[in-house]
């Protein structure tokens, strides 16, 4: 009796496992969001200016193109994270001196760059079936305290879903 039951139990467990795998994997595979994110241009430059007459230097606008699919019930978020302060050799300009405004609002929002914590640029829920664009304008707080140099840093845009 026992010799006959054990193979049956194996088959039962295998069937259960296969069924469970189907339940676990089939919906997850179908819900895996498909994301697309494009940033244009790849470089922005803050033009030199007199801090007295131009206390805030605006860079040319940046276009953010994004698309979110297979995300019917999930949320999505575009975040910004700088690699660090603006640096020129040993000279630095704090990255927190760079702020941005963005449109349309929502889903976009204004903020201040950080080198340590990703900041939300845009967020929403569900799908964005067609490629959609937003405009971001970065501004550098101008100051007489900046030492001479050619400063640079990198900013990573990350689109995440859910």
């Amino acid at each position: 009796m026992h010799l006959m039951t054990l193979p049956r139990l194996h088959r039962a467990v295998l069937a259960l496992a296969a069924c469970a795998l189907g339940l676990v994997f089939a919906p997850e595979a179908a819900a895996q969001p498909t994301l697309r994110l494009t940033i244009t241009p790849a470089t922005i430059t803050f033009a030199p200016a007199d801090p007295d007459t131009t206390p805030s230097i605006a860079a040319p606008s940046v276009t953010v193109s994004y698309r979110v699919r297979s995300n019917a019930t999930g949320s999505w978020r575009i975040s910004l994270l700088a690699s660090g302060d603006l640096t020129a050799g040993t000279a630095t300009i704090p990255i927190t001196n760079v702020t941005w405004t963005a449109s349309p609002t929502p889903p976009f929002q204004a903020g201040t760059l950080s080198g340590t914590l990703a900041q939300t640029l845009a967020s929403g829920s569900g799908n964005v079936q067609n490629t959609t664009t937003g405009t971001v304008v970065f501004r550098l707080a101008n100051s007489w305290t900046y030492n001479v140099g050619s400063y640079s840093t990198a900013v990573v845009f990350t689109l995440t879903a859910p």
Partner: peptide, 21 residues
């Protein structure tokens, strides 16, 4: 398997420069 399929990401990069004279 569930953890591996939980999220998707796409990234883009921007370089910011300023020259102080």
């Amino acid at each position: 398997a569930t953890q591996g399929l939980g999220a998707a990401t796409a990234t883009g990069s921007l370089s910011a420069t300023v020259t102080v004279s």
